[in-house]
Design a protein around this nucleic acid. Structure first.
Lengths: 340, 340
DNA sequence: GCGAATCTTTGAATCGTTTCATTGTTACGA
DNA sequence: TCGTAACAATGAAACGATTCAAAGATTCGC
């Protein structure tokens, strides 16, 4: 055997017309029991597998959805991807996954590839601004949903998470557990997410007249950056020390935790409460389990698929922007300070 | 505009034959400058995008390669995927990624899907044993390369990493830096990888007449499992303590490090040297930067694509099993013990 | 036993590309 | 000026599935 069998081969082998084979595959009820069995046997004997390209050509569209993320290695996206795949599977579609790696060139390649594949639609968490290429897509009628990025509802549907609300949630939690001298640690506040989280925190702090918020810029958002911030804290006078620290992500928080626990100068959470953002796997297994803000990644992925389906089915591009609120996860690192 | 333009529309718009448009796309040299410009303008004006389904139907095969991994969230696979994508892009193919999540059902779905897509070939890190379905694939002539799993060369090509060598490397390093009472920490040794790493370690220890190797089973391979192993170590008499601990993965090692640094009873690396496996991102930013064994994931992904290309091009299924040797990464957690 | 209604099966047309034998055009040397 | 070689452009056929109008078979009531 050299070539893979076609529907025609199956038809010959079972002595029926090609239309009948197609019916067995797509509308089994239209076919009599006898012929159905004969055809199925032929399919089995020849090892026939449908050629999706031919199907798709006839149908005019594919059964796949394109998904382009900034970084598959990032647990946030990994989780979104998984949820999207599951949701797509439920409606009989498959997901083609592309990883742009924050690189506009790779992103463009995937967009082109997916267009050639005639995907039903595209989910994308775009590199930088919404580009010309994306606008082109829209004009060409490829339904597109932006992921983790709020979009002009005139142009795109989108799913995103309210970072301001997340920042509020974190700061409010520190305040609610009695802390008053808060600090925010983040990389450059020119990153929109960081800025929004800080704004949310500021909003919460304003609600308490006796509370203050200090901003500590870090050099990046890594564990090591966190550690060096932590080291400057350790040097301070106790009176000058914040009693609640909110980090723009968990890595920073873990770094700070390292320097505090290494030196044994201050205790977590008694002297300093610590809360991060993202709730990565490591948060729960830190030396002191880390409180964090969890983003509803599964809901993001699932909803993105649903919004896409809406657009595909309606045909009329009525866009929606769905914004999710993140969730507070309390662990030991922000335990009650009076539980000393 | 409702329908996307076809090559025929372009031909009309540019007043040429469809064959000419095709030539512009595929063999630009065969077309005169004048017509080429006219056609390209038409393509631009109509927003024409090739229909890959039709191409593929005509060509008989696609330009995509299927890749099924056990877990996209696992940094090991993430890295393999990235390398495979890059290598595939170099030869003009795209990678369709599937995540089986260690689930045989999902794996089967992806195998079927990819067959319908007529992928050029399949890279797969299979769930459990090499299944019937995989054998079927082979019989149907779909070139297949197993990833991270040694295969019978009669049947499949494969790329894998020599875990025995990795275990040897780790133990040898501990011995070379003067440790003599080694311990191996791993989850169930029924996992092949764990068993091989242990065997490699045993081989190294046998080379030193005065060295011993103790095996500590952990309940899983997580940070928390490591911490509970660490806690039992802390309880021991100093005389009874291993002076070099080799963990079957980095998570275990980080857990042990946590319990040792929390109690401050023993110092790393002076009292106990610690080495992990996988060299995850967190290894470098641990409280004491963790020595580890790094697996050549990029090489795995790249080579898998190359082996596949070999099979596709030759047509003759001559299989090869490529085995990589992992690499020792020395950090502070195994620093010289005499550097006290 | 007959006609109508229902159920099965048929096969040509179609989707959009690539291929390739054929036809048309141009350039050049004799 | 003519013949030929090199170059350009043409358009029908093919890929493999689905669709659908039409033909053929079966069932049923009377």
């Amino acid at each position: 055997m050299n070539r893979t069998a076609s529907i025609k081969d199956v038809a010959n082998h079972a002595s029926v017309a090609v239309g009948t084979v197609s019916n067995v595959l797509n509308y089994p009820d239209r076919v009599s029991q006898r012929t159905k069995e004969r055809v199925l046997r032929a399919i089995d004997e020849l090892g026939f597998v449908r050629n999706d390209a031919a199907r798709q050509l006839r149908a005019g569209h594919s059964r796949t959805i394109g998904l382009i993320v900034l970084d598959v290695g990032n647990p946030f996206f990994t989780s979104v991807v998984r949820a999207a795949e599951d949701a797509a599977a439920l409606q009989g579609s498959a997901v083609l996954l592309g990883d742009s790696g924050h690189n506009a060139g790779r992103e463009a390649n995937y967009i082109d590839l997916f267009q050639e594949q005639r995907v039903q639609g595209l989910l994308i968490s775009p590199v930088g601004d919404v580009t010309e290429r994306l606008d082109l897509l829209r004009e060409r009628g490829v339904p597109t949903v932006l992921v983790d990025r709020l979009a002009d509802e005139e142009k795109f549907s989108s799913v995103s998470v309210d970072d301001d609300a997340g920042g509020y949630l974190a700061a409010r939690h520190l305040l609610d557990t009695g802390r008053r001298r808060l600090a925010f640690v983040g990389g450059s506040t020119t990153i929109r997410q960081v800025w929004d989280r800080l704004e949310g925190a500021r909003r919460a702090v304003k609600e308490e007249p006796d509370a203050t918020l200090e901003v500590l810029e870090s050099d990046g958002m890594t564990v090591l950056a966190g550690r060096s911030v932590g080291n400057t804290l350790v040097e301070r006078d106790r009176a000058d020390l914040p009693d609640g620290v909110f980090c723009a992500n968990d890595l920073l928080a873990l770094g700070i935790m390292q320097s505090l626990t290494m030196t044994h100068t201050f205790r977590i959470p008694e002297d300093i409460a610590l809360i991060g953002y993202d709730d990565i796997d490591f948060a729960v297994s830190a030396v002191v389990p880390l409180s964090s803000i969890r983003q509803p990644t599964e809901a993001l992925g699932r909803t993105a698929i649903e919004l896409l389906a809406e657009e595909v089915e309606s045909g009329h591009p009525r866009h929606r922007a769905v914004i999710f609120t993140p969730e507070l996860v309390v662990r030991q690192s922000t335990g009650e300070p009076d539980a000393k």
